[in-house]
């Protein structure tokens, strides 16, 4: 059976043409936004991987999308609401049951400010 297919053929062509190249700063910035710590080695490989994925998405830039509405969800086209009726909450003990750190029914987190 065939295991090696040239599925990425389209990609290969475009790598030569116009490669979307993210910078290290881009990756560091996005990682900071996403609250992910990335080491410098990780950053290096992420620059390449993310660049390739974004480059693949370049074909979206070629399309003329003037006047095309955006689809952000599918299905329901009417307002969905529920009645303003109370239902039982969890107890405070249940609420914090899965917390890594809690203190008398409150979630405990390290100080917000730099320590």
């Amino acid at each position: 059976m065939t295991s090696e297919l040239n599925l990425a053929g389209r990609l290969g062509e475009r790598v030569e043409g116009h490669f979307v190249h993210l910078t290290t700063d881009d990756v560091v910035h996005v990682a900071a936004l996403a609250r992910l710590h990335v080491t410098s080695e990780e950053t290096e490989s992420l620059v390449l991987e993310l660049s390739r994925i974004l480059d693949y998405a370049r074909d979206l830039q070629e399309l003329d999308l003037t006047g095309v509405p955006a689809t952000s969800q599918i299905g329901i086209t009417t307002t969905v609401v529920r009645a303003d009726e109370r239902r039982p909450s969890l107890t405070a003990a249940e609420a914090v049951a899965n917390a890594p750190d809690e203190d008398e029914g409150m979630f405990r987190v390290p100080a917000v400010l730099e320590g």
Binding site: R82, D84, E85, R86, R87, S89, L90, T91, A92, A95, V96, E104, G105, M106, F107
Partner: peptide, 21 residues
């Protein structure tokens, strides 16, 4: 009477985390 996206009661001054789901 209840929160905007769930059915927990809106109450001022309840014990900590006792009005959560």
């Amino acid at each position: 009477r209840t929160k905007i996206f769930c059915s927990c009661a809106v109450e001022f001054g309840a014990a900590s985390n006792s009005r959560v789901c």
